[in-house]
Simulated assay, not measured.
Amino acid sequence: MKILERYQGWLHVVGWAFFAGLPFLTLPSFLWNQQDLLSIGMAQLLTGSVIATCFYYNLRRLTPDFLATQHLNRFVLTLLAMLLVVGLVRIGSFYGFPPGVHYSPRGRRRQFSPWPGALSASLSFGFAMILSSLIALIRHHARLRDQQQQMALGKVSAELAMLKLQVSPHFLFNTLNNIRWLARQKSQKTEDAVVKLSQLLRYMLYQAQRDRVPLTQEIEHLHHYIDLQQMRLNDRQTVDFVVTGPVEALEIEPLLFIPFVENAFKYGLHGQETSHIQIRLVVADNELLFSVQNPDFTTSGASSEDSGIGIANVAQRLTLHYPGRHTLHYGTEAGKFNIALTLALHQEMVNV
């Protein structure tokens, strides 16, 4: 299709040249003289010009309007009117450019009639209209397909925007709770917590709205969040965040990991019991493995209603952004809640 679109101008030129020359290829031998060729050529040029005008009018206006409005009567009446014009032009050209006088082998004078030429022009007109309508129909379906694709892309973009909006307020709500807790304790870490929060909000406002961000920025965002959370931890609550592999050369959809980490801090810490959160991010051969393990201190109600919201949103975003290129497993085993996310990032290399 792209090749045809590229050379469609030449295809039109060749097609009309063949259309104009076809009558001369079918002329009987007794008409091959200068006067007859001139008369037939002028008649063919005039009639062909009218048919070509009808062809492009039908291609660009008549058939597209019919497909848009479905007004069949107007479509048919316009075609009949154009057919009448072609017939009249062909008959008029016969009398305006009369052929020469010819005699049969027996000496009888041949009588020429305009009606065979009119019939031939009508058939040519019908072929031209069918061809132009088919081309218009193909273009119409191509436009509809493009519109449907644009609508689908718009729907996906809207869904992604909605999911990001669902993630961000949830994250902000928990972070403000942490700062409120520090303020109630009159902790000296409150100011540092506000600074960390401003860094997180700056990332969410200016970087997370992009389709892709450098993986290093996403990791830095996780560090800021973990630092903010660690301000309220006691000696029995520890966090281990380890990053390995060539993370500098990759990009990723923003805010994919933060719901998992947020979920670990919200439901994996206990005030009286030892709690340890283990976070791993490993990159090898353009494949990323992100895992989180934490104790499961959730109640059945909280686990089913709250803790799964962020994970469910990330699962939907993964389906939209990494179809067939990710695996996500999570669940509780032996009192530990585990999350394991694998991403194929071969198409997310940073442009340098």
Score class of each variant (00 low, 15 high):
Val101Glu: 13
Leu83Gly: 09
Val50Gly: 04
Pro114Gly: 01
Phe75Met: 05
Leu119Pro: 07
Gly96Met: 12
Gly107Cys: 08
Ala52Lys: 03
Ile51Gly: 00
Leu77Pro: 01
Met129Ala: 13
Ala121Gly: 10
Ala121Val: 05
Phe125Gln: 00
Arg74Thr: 04
Leu62Met: 01
Gly107Asp: 09
Ser124His: 00
Leu77Thr: 10
Ile91Gln: 03
Ser93Val: 02
Leu62Phe: 00
Ser93Glu: 08
Met82Trp: 07
Pro105Glu: 06
Ala68Asp: 14
Leu72Phe: 12
Pro105Ala: 10
Arg108Ser: 13
Phe75Ile: 02
Ile130Val: 14
His71Met: 09
Ala128Thr: 03
Val50Tyr: 08
Phe97Ile: 05
Ala52His: 05
Val76Asn: 03
Gly87Val: 04
Ile130Tyr: 12
Phe55Arg: 01
His71Arg: 13
Gln70Lys: 13
Phe94Leu: 03
Thr53Ile: 15
Phe127Gln: 03
Ser93Cys: 07
Arg109Ile: 14
Pro105Phe: 02
Phe55Ala: 04
Gly100Asp: 15
Pro64Trp: 11
Gly100Cys: 12
His102Gly: 05
Trp115Cys: 06
Leu59Ser: 02
Val86Pro: 00
Gly107Tyr: 11
Ala121Leu: 04
Ala52Gln: 07
Phe97His: 05
Val86Glu: 00
Thr78Glu: 06
Val101Asp: 13
Asn73Met: 13
Tyr103Asp: 06
Val50Leu: 10
Arg60Trp: 07
Thr53Arg: 09
Leu123Asn: 05
Thr69Lys: 15
Gly96Val: 08
Phe66Leu: 10
Leu59Phe: 13
Asp65Trp: 09
Val89Lys: 08
Leu77Gln: 08
Gly87Trp: 02
Val101Trp: 09
Pro114Ile: 00
Leu59Tyr: 13
Gly96Glu: 07
His102Phe: 05
Arg108Ala: 15
Tyr56Gly: 07
Ile91Gly: 12
Ser104Phe: 12
Val85Pro: 00
Ser122Val: 07
Ile91Thr: 09
Thr63Ala: 12
Leu80Phe: 10
Tyr56Gln: 09
Pro105Cys: 03
Ser104Thr: 15
Gly117Arg: 02
Val101Ser: 12
Ala121Ile: 05
Leu59Gly: 02
Gly100Ala: 15
Leu123Met: 12
Val89Glu: 02
Asn73Thr: 14
Val50Thr: 10
Leu79Val: 10
Arg108Phe: 13
His102Ser: 06
Trp115Thr: 12
Val101Thr: 15
